[in-house]
Design a protein around this nucleic acid. Sequence first.
DNA 1: GCAGAGAGTTTTAACGTTCAAAAGGGCGTC
DNA 2: GACGCCCTTTTGAACGTTAAAACTCTCTGC
Lengths: 345, 345
Amino acid sequence: MATLKQVAAHAEVSVQTVSNALNAPHRLRPDTLQRVTKSIELLNYRPNRNARSLRTSAVELIGYCVPSWPNGQAHLVMDQFLHSLCGAAEATGRHILLFTAPTGVDGMPVYEDLHARRLVDGFVLSQTETHDPRHGWLREEQIPFVSFGRVWKETTQPGPFVDVDGAVGCANAVRHLHETGRRRIGFLSWPKTSGLAEDRLSGWRAACQELGLPTKGLAVRCAEDTIDEGARATAELLDSGQAVDGIVAISDILALGALRELGTRGLIAGVDVGVTGFDDSPLASVVSPALTSIRQPMDQIAAELIDILTTDHRRTSDESAGQLRSTTERLLQPELVVRGSSAPG
Amino acid sequence: MATLKQVAAHAEVSVQTVSNALNAPHRLRPDTLQRVTKSIELLNYRPNRNARSLRTSAVELIGYCVPSWPNGQAHLVMDQFLHSLCGAAEATGRHILLFTAPTGVDGMPVYEDLHARRLVDGFVLSQTETHDPRHGWLREEQIPFVSFGRVWKETTQPGPFVDVDGAVGCANAVRHLHETGRRRIGFLSWPKTSGLAEDRLSGWRAACQELGLPTKGLAVRCAEDTIDEGARATAELLDSGQAVDGIVAISDILALGALRELGTRGLIAGVDVGVTGFDDSPLASVVSPALTSIRQPMDQIAAELIDILTTDHRRTSDESAGQLRSTTERLLQPELVVRGSSAPG
DNA sequence: GCAGAGAGTTTTAACGTTCAAAAGGGCGTC
DNA sequence: GACGCCCTTTTGAACGTTAAAACTCTCTGC
């Protein structure tokens, strides 16, 4: 492993000059720069990150707590999220450090420890829950963080976040079904305790009202996020005597339940009833008919998260031209991925 | 942020003594130890990991390349795997660093760079492919690594690995279906190019032969891992006129296809035909009837991976009592999770 | 009473980098 | 030709930790 010293000796300059060649090349005379660069390549030199971090006290690592779902309920798009997050971090020379922690306030010592030992510069939070205690705590401790997802039911959001506008997503799904001729569009939801669910539900309701479509009795709550519950709720809708011809589901899993129930009844999804899901999980393209689904823009989400976490927004907020980019609260627009399950009826 | 120096001043000892209190407490006189410990707690001291790593040249970080599936085919159990891997790493005071890299040999510079800059001590590889070039390359470069999954079709495995015995898993599924009264058990497989597929297929064949069950014409290849393909292959089996009453699928997705095809034909999974999947993905418990599936022991896999990567097995191999633990090639046994889809017929 | 052992503690030096300040060299101005 | 200035390069110190050597006691044995 070559060190700065060895490169310096090889190029016959001082150690600091080599350092400058890497960090501030404009300070060097062109011929010196070339000579140093040549030595660096020749010796295959790579700066030691630990030494650098020690000196600059910045580790360029971002902590992310890998969520555990004790109920076995998996995060079907974590895959995509992590990939995007890594990519965005790497675009700024950073990396993601994974760790586990108990949920809620019990996990706080883990976050504090990682930061205190300088294993990470800050955190990206996800799986944000209603009244999530982490945000307030991290803010109190002055530990840098950014949240994917809002802390619902707080009057003021504690700290910066990036989130996807679920209401707009569901409204778009309704509009899409309306365009393909559906007029009685149901909504498969989750229990009221979820802020996420209420957000998405409100989008469905607003779009229906805007288009003059009925909503009464057309929103069904599912106790849990399973195919069975989705099927049960769909059955409830179909049996309500309202001639439902469209279903917006709050998750792909529930949408799969809808597809199954339709199949059981001899109805054809995308023909008799249009169905949409949420998240565009890998399942969506694997079923038949493939599921129309509301896709969260993962790459963009990740880029915004990293941007907020790694740039100082107290300064940029007043001088920068872009008003939108200056804030530390960013709401992104989802995209409807249209597939067979919502084909024109 | 308290440093060693500050703690030393507070406890009125030298810096080295505080360091010893943490790393070699037996060297201190009990009363000194107590005094130092008290100061450490009082000042809420945490050792700076960068300084430590610089000195010891060990970062206690393990690199893991987050796989990208351009075809949208997701890793449904990555979730579980990462959680287990993190847990196992943390049990030894280490953490997981995520990164992205091109697949195949193009990604090698990324691995080399991470190691050369001392961002990681070594790597855990997964998504191992037939003729995977990474293993040989890393070995050549003397970069520590361990693989989850064998490099199929190599005469000798380049480097240490942990894998799950897919053959035994599928054989167990066959035995289970046999115990519940099935006598004509089909197998849904992948293309021949996959070593993984051939391993699992061989287990199905062996168990059938052992139990005196037919195999001819009962193994169907699916072109891709989709529900549609699973359904198509199931249809092929059911139409073959062999009165198939059991289906062992090489993945949960294909098994889901089998369930769908059975439903379409008015057959009841778990009653008319027993079905098993592979991986015990989150989907297995979310469908109805719930899917019997072959579960890979993630916690154990992760623990073995970390163990191999972090302990020197040249030394332990001769002195240690356990022969099994001494090798750097470990084959673990999967577990059949029985659910409704294979209930006694 | 003194060499020698040993436990406990301190001193010294180093890990590889960057920051701040100082030094060197070339050039123009008066 | 002395001076000041800018551009480039070097020097010295520091980041916080640990390994190894050195020192200081106290205890043991003869």
